[in-house]
Amino acid sequence: MLLEIENLKASVEGKEILKGINLSIPAGEVHAIMGPNGSGKSTLSSIIAGKDGYEISGSIRFDGVEIMDWEPEIRSRAGIFLAFQYPVELPGVGLSSFLRACVNESRKHRGEPELDASAFLALMREKAALVELSQELIRRPVNQGFSGGEKKRNEIFQMAMLDPKMAILDETDSGLDIDALRIVAEGVNKLRHAQRSMLVITHYQRLLEYIIPDRVHVLIDGAIVMSGDRNLALTLEEKGYDWIRAGQEVSS
């Protein structure tokens, strides 16, 4: 198992947001999470990535190691990547120098030598082509003045640059136009391989037509209430979440 989450609970200021999540993702698999607004999807992603500010209990193991105490940068260097639902802007911080620092941090962590300027530039060119991110955007400060869709594309570009073992894509599809969705999804597919797992959060079955998931989980009100294969996404698209909620009430 690459990622194993057991009975993960999280609350903020006494309000419980995650209510005992259990989720295991084997290496190489793509899992999708769907769920209504406010159900806790982004909170779950942030906590896997190590964000501070929650009271947490339970366990998160990555590659068999408990990582609950790890700082976000250590998790990142170990291979956890989060494509943010709302990427922030870093005024004045050039995208290429930012990424170069980030890439070299994870290389150092893996005991690899730092990339020199020309190797880094070549890598950037290659990965930018993957999601068709323009050179003009690469020269700008990180996300500064980027459109919503450009920011999302930039997240996948960064993922490609950092070459993680586990990528969490939090609503990467929202904000992308029809062509961009296809381009980004194809980019993501090219990044799929037997060693890399992904957790794809989305509201729309459309994305899952491109990025075909091995498993689909439904997160409602801080708990995974149903899991299934890719057909579950189709059912959700058709019926919404009420039938699951109704089913829960019946069963409880």
Partner: peptide, 11 residues
Amino acid sequence: ILFYCTQRGLS
């Protein structure tokens, strides 16, 4: 903003 940067591997 800090979380975004540390998520990418920066201290």
